[in-house]
Amino acid sequence: MTADIPIVVIGLMGAGKTSVSRLLGEALGRPVRDSDEYLQQRYGATAAEIAAGDGAEVLHAREAAHLREALAERPAPVIAAAASVLDDPRSRAELKPALVVWLDATPEFLAEKIKARSHRPRFGKEPLALASELHERRAASFAEVADLRFQRPEMSKHEVARAVLDHLKASAT
């Protein structure tokens, strides 16, 4: 794994993408590109605010734009990508050259995280119902693109980052 290949951390909201991406970016000396930060900086709004004001389609298009822009950057960043990007076949295809790390988590774990942070869109659903629906809808797409898969919270964010770093070290030899 060379430094010119992006690392993309995927998973449903609340799985720990931002934290794991930051740990990896720090360890590797790479920039980190986070979908939530991108939305706030580019549009002055959280994902929840964009979904409520402009709709889910606009939110998801902006999240896909973030992924495309980040994948094109050099040096290659670590990218915390929104799960919605996997709904788009073009975005899934654009992930092929990247190392894709899937943070899988139970809907119960994710629901607690969704409740805890107001920036996460709920699309008019209770957190557990939303997490269950999204997990069911996107699991196959995650599996299609993921090079590595880790179960959260069985593995801590630090353990996940260490496992990814170990994988990179082993693949470099």
Rank of each mutant, 00 (worst) to 15 (best):
M1Y: 10
V9A: 07
I10T: 15
I10R: 02
G11L: 03
M13E: 03
M13F: 01
S19D: 03
V20C: 03
S21E: 03
R22K: 14
L23Y: 10
L24P: 04
S35K: 04
A47I: 02
E49R: 07
G53E: 14
D54I: 01
A56P: 00
L59M: 09
H60A: 13
H66Y: 08
R68W: 09
E69M: 11
E69A: 15
E69P: 00
L71R: 02
E73D: 12
E73L: 14
R74V: 09
A76E: 07
A80C: 06
A81Y: 07
A83H: 13
S84Q: 07
V85I: 15
R90T: 15
S91I: 09
R92H: 07
R92D: 11
R92I: 12
A98W: 05
V101M: 10
F109E: 14
E112Y: 00
I114M: 07
K115H: 02
A116R: 12
S118N: 12
S118K: 14
R122H: 05
E126H: 09
A129L: 11
L130C: 05
L130R: 06
A131R: 07
E144M: 10
E144V: 08
V145T: 04
L148D: 08
R149Y: 04
F150R: 04
R152G: 02
E154S: 08
K157P: 06
H158T: 14
H158I: 10
H167V: 03
H167N: 08
A170I: 00
T173V: 06
